[in-house]
């Protein structure tokens, strides 16, 4: 066990208490009375169907959205009491698909992760460039540091976004559907990077709609449906056919196959 994990010892670093949220006045209620907690130094997966409110929950955990009821605590203190820069140093976000309107190089793009560590008008210095370079190396993009980030493949762009979050050096890393557009080899790369970060003490929280991804990457699981948490706890206990069936509203069975967890759902395909 790394010292990072011992230090945090599974203490909850981020807690969401009875949070409600709706978009716009009289809009759809995205979250209702949602409570969830995320132990420090572990990988938590938020699993649920499309439209369950996973991204909203992530934005609430970041402090980007404020809950209309309830509260969000980071290290025991309401997130709303933290300054923007404190948030930037504590929580990093890797959005689902980021619009990058201009052709920044990978190094320039990853260096933006250093923003919360600099004064308002300060430019990045040699140390920041070194940290950004190391982060690029960590996700395996060293050869592409000078390339235009908009010319990268989807997988490489996702890795660049993760590198930026690594350069940010935060305690918590929030990722929105980090693997949904990736092929198998890139999925396994991202999986490896995330578990590496967790071993060094980073708290990793990601959303996904694929049970296999959640089972492979996360030690903690939160099942969401229609803006509520259905079940949460250790992945091994929560990942059952009964729970997944309730989450997705269709019959799902869970099986172990050579050590991996697989979710079986397509009964119709047996007709073949």
């Amino acid at each position: 066990m790394s010292s990072g994990m011992d230090r945090r010892g599974g203490r909850d670093i981020l807690e969401i208490e009875d949070a409600g949220f709706s978009y716009g006045r009289g809009g759809i209620q995205a979250l209702r009375g949602l409570s969830a907690s995320f132990p420090g130094g572990e990988v938590s997966a938020i699993l649920g169907p499309n439209g369950a409110g996973k991204t909203t929950l992530l934005h609430l955990a970041l402090g980007y959205l404020a809950p209309s009821s309830g509260r969000v605590l980071f290290e025991g203190r309401p997130l709303s009491e933290y300054s923007r820069r404190e948030i930037g140093r504590s929580l990093a976000l890797v959005p689902q698909s980021e619009r990058i309107p201009f052709q920044y190089s990978v190094l320039e793009y990853v260096t933006l992760g250093r923003v919360p560590h600099l004064a308002a008008l300060e430019m990045p210095g040699p140390d920041d460039l070194r940290i950004a370079g190391e982060a690029i190396g960590e996700v395996g993009l060293s050869g592409l540091a000078g390339r235009d980030v908009t010319s990268l493949s989807g997988g490489e762009r996702q890795l660049a976004a993760i590198a930026r979050a690594v350069a940010q050096g935060t305690e918590v890393l929030l990722l929105d559907e980090p693997m949904s557009h990736l092929d198998l080899s890139n999925k396994s790369r991202v999986l490896g990077i995330l578990s590496g970060l967790a071993r060094r003490g980073t708290t990793v929280i990601f959303t996904t709609h694929e049970p296999e991804i959640a089972a492979a990457a996360a030690s903690r699981l939160i099942l969401m449906r229609e803006g509520r948490v259905l079940k949460s706890g250790p992945t091994d206990e929560i990942m059952t056919g009964e729970n997944l069936s309730a989450t997705y509203g269709i019959p799902v069975r869970v099986a172990k196959l050579e050590g991996s967890t697989v979710a079986l759902w397509a009964e119709g395909s047996r007709a073949r």
Binding site: H59, L62, G63, Y64, R84, R85, I87, G88, R89, L91, A92, L93, P95, E98, R99, I100, P101, F102, Y104, E108, L112, G113, V115, P116, A120, L121, E122, M123, P124, Q168, L174
Partner: peptide, 19 residues
């Protein structure tokens, strides 16, 4: 330099500590 951050999505700019 802040302009680079502000050219990105709102949530991303926020997560990088910008206002």
């Amino acid at each position: 330099w802040r302009l680079n951050v502000l050219s990105l999505d709102d949530a991303t700019a926020f997560s990088l500590g910008a206002a």
